[in-house]
Design a protein around this nucleic acid. Structure first.
Lengths: 236, 236
DNA sequence: TCGGTGTTTTAGTTTTGGCTAAAATATAAA
DNA sequence: TTTATATTTTAGCCAAAACTAAAACACCGA
């Protein structure tokens, strides 16, 4: 009806797999059976099975023992889901008052239920955001995705002035606590930081925020924060 | 997690059946296999099958050839779905600019995907509406439902001053065109009417709206409009 | 090159919720 | 009361997507 494609709507499972493969880098490279199985909390045998199906449907290129990569069609399908997911997350956080730790799970279910029509109306209501609250770029309708110009905090040097670009929510894994911790301290996308010290020894990074507050971040935290060099650039 | 019940969430099919039975009057009376099959566009044999399952789960009382009725648990499950459905419809119409004809289908899919948490946050955002845009009462969290004090337009008499209470969207059937027609003419819940003529002969009802415009409504239209006697009552 | 370890596939089941065709039952009409 | 029609159930089947257990394969280190 309001579906962009004419073909029957892929089942939610298909979408989960395609998205997982994309997130694992299968858009450009290749994703292994085990990686996919782990990501989806599913037995490896189930993945093998599904990859066969996805190949039939033209979503992946796949030869046994060889790993899977997305076809152009699969890539677009994945990006369609990612667009939905990120728009829904934005809505949940900004309009329904969801907390960071609840948002992902809810969006994961909703992204399979909403129509393209819903998605685009939502985008309009949100005034076509370019990034979600995590700072992740939101794919456009045509499947284009803003290039990622960020690097992990550990790759910065003392004295650098940077902007938090995104906070990874290491999908699949349950690192909601990290998001909560960072959120409570205002270490969220858009925040400006000055790097104080990057200690190779124990992976601790010390930063100072806009309010002059200093934060010592251990390896796990520092790896979750992605920044880009500060410039009067387009953050929209 | 945020589910009110501790039991595993019923699959979307279970919900569809329970809701269908409720809408067919199985909350108080009984719903037949065929009625349910027609409503859900499913083969009668499938219904028989599912009714067995629903009985196991404690949602319905059912004996073969005898029709099905909801248990208290089933009734609450149905009302939970109905609450979701009507809140979602309200959101789609008021906030996403959906049209009357699109709203039902989208809500039908979404109501199975959203959590109780989502539902209640949405209710809050909508300021806890008591009725949806069709004028249907929205069940409260505890499963209570405002009594229906309305009657079909055909049961009125000439000269009566009435308020449109709700516009039935005869579920399952595709009478979206009726909703569109009425919507375009402002014949929506909350509108005040004066009954001009109720012609038993051909089922036509003539009414005059607040702007003095007269409408001649055939049987199908007149049966879709439910009204209540006008009084300075609580329409919230 | 040969093992061994870990990954992947195959084979065979399970569950859920559909389907059709045929048999059984109920209901209404004669 | 008997018969015709409509409804409901039974029986057997299918597809999707998951599972386990066992076999096949890949790759790394010696």
């Amino acid at each position: 009806m309001s579906n962009a494609t004419t073909t029957p709507p892929p089942s939610s499972s298909v979408g989960d797999y395609v998205k997982a493969i994309w997130e694992l880098g299968g858009g450009t490279g290749t994703a292994s059976t085990k990686e996919i199985a782990d990501r989806l909390s599913v037995a490896p045998a189930s993945v093998t099975n599904m990859l066969g199906r996805l190949r039939e449907r033209g979503f992946v290129e796949y030869e046994r023992y060889r790993g899977a990569s997305l076809t152009e069609e699969g890539r677009l399908e994945a990006l369609r889901l990612v667009r939905r997911h990120r728009l829904i997350e934005t809505f949940l956080l900004e309009h329904l008052g969801y907390s960071w730790e609840d948002v992902h799970e809810e969006a994961e279910r909703l992204e399979h239920a909403v129509s393209d029509n819903f998605t685009e109306r939502l985008a309009e209501m949100l005034e076509h955001p370019e990034r979600d609250p995590h700072g992740e770029p939101i794919p456009k309708v045509d499947g284009s995705l803003a290039p990622d110009d960020s690097r992990p905090l550990v790759d910065t040097e003392a004295g650098e002035r940077v902007l938090i670009s995104r906070v990874s929510h290491g999908v699949g894994g349950d690192d909601a606590p990290i998001l909560v911790y960072l959120g409570e301290r205002g270490l969220v996308p858009g925040r400006e930081l000055v790097v104080g010290e990057v200690r190779a020894l124990d992976g601790v990074v010390v930063v100072e925020d806009e309010d002059g507050v200093s934060h010592a971040l251990g390896p796990a935290l520092a790896a979750s924060i992605f920044v880009r060099t500060y410039a009067e650039s387009a953050q929209e």
